[in-house]
């Protein structure tokens, strides 16, 4: 049994992004960590409320933080790891927000009088941060069984791992954390200039043509710089870049498909976890099976 670490999966990992959840938990297991799902977690809200005069979008996140506070005491660890970029962003922003605005925290504590007060000591981490700072890339290198030698990956961070500044896991204009991880796995990392650009986000629901235009640009430039796959950590980025290739192809004759993967799937493959139970390639619109075949 590995060391217990609190894990916040979020809604999407429980459904369409099973490939992200399983590859995360299983890759962590290889590294000696037992990712335990936070008991009774609730939805993070996906986007953080920006209205200064409202606390309604902060409630659910603080409730999650309180749950982590309780469970963290039980297992003796205050780290709460999320892998979905949106979940990470929301939980981290909520934590910073209420720590900066104590009045807000007070209001929320009173509102949630059925819960204990939030004490402010939950360390919300993205899985990439956990891998870099707590596990260490040296230790990850030791677990690599199938180096991804020759695989050209475009690391794609999107927005919510890097913006706004207070939640950035790395330099917002030129991040390298995912590059360094992918290199540790033996992959070749391409210099992908659009790695911190937006995929179009929630517009995929009602303006999917716009999102398809973003996908066209993001995937085409990745192709241009020589990538075989794009690696991401956000299920919404994943969906937009993967699924919206359908419309992109319809609109642009020159468009060429490219598979999108989660960085955790690449980690799993490098660690030798190659079964469909972990990778769930059936969840991909553009199957990465062919591109990844040499390492599978």
């Amino acid at each position: 049994m590995g060391k217990k670490i609190m894990f916040y999966p979020g809604c999407t990992l429980k459904g369409v992004a099973k490939n992200l959840e399983d590859s995360t938990i299983e890759s962590a297991r290889i590294l000696g960590y037992d990712f335990v799902e936070l008991p009774n977690w609730t939805c993070c809200g996906a986007v953080y409320g920006l209205a200064q005069d409202s606390v309604k979008f902060t409630i659910a996140n603080v409730r999650n933080l309180i749950k982590a506070q309780q469970y963290g005491k039980e297992i003796g660890d205050n780290r709460l790891v999320a892998v979905c970029s949106m979940c990470y962003n929301n939980l981290r922003r909520a934590h910073i927000d209420v720590m900066k605005n104590r009045d807000k925290l007070h209001t929320l504590n009173i509102f949630m009088d059925e819960e204990p007060d939030y004490e402010g000591n939950i360390n919300v981490l993205h899985y990439l941060q956990f891998l870099k700072d707590d596990v260490g890339f040296d230790n990850i290198a030791k677990k690599v069984k199938t180096p991804l030698k020759g695989l050209k990956v475009a690391p794609y961070y999107g927005c919510l791992l890097l913006r706004p500044d207070e939640v950035a896991i790395d330099d917002r204009e030129d991040p390298h954390i995912m590059e360094n991880l992918l290199k540790t796995l033996g992959a070749e990392v391409v210099d992908y200039p659009l790695k911190n650009e937006c995929c179009g986000s929630y517009h995929t629901v009602d303006k999917r043509e716009y999102v398809a235009e973003r996908t066209y640009k993001l995937v085409s430039i990745a192709k241009e710089v020589g990538a075989d796959v794009i690696a991401t950590s956000c299920p919404l980025c994943f969906f937009n870049l993967d699924r919206r290739q359908e419309i992109a192809k319809q609109k642009h004759g020159d468009f060429e498909h490219m598979p999108i993967v989660y960085f955790t799937q690449l980690m799993a493959i490098a660690f030798g976890l190659k079964s469909e139970d972990v990778l769930h390639f059936d969840r991909h619109y553009i199957s990465p099976r062919e591109v990844l075949a040499p390492w599978l």
Partner: peptide, 14 residues
């Protein structure tokens, strides 16, 4: 050619 507006991003394509 003068263009009024601050550039936000420059990247290499080919």
């Amino acid at each position: 050619n003068f263009i009024r507006g601050k550039v936000s991003k420059i990247y290499k394509v080919g």
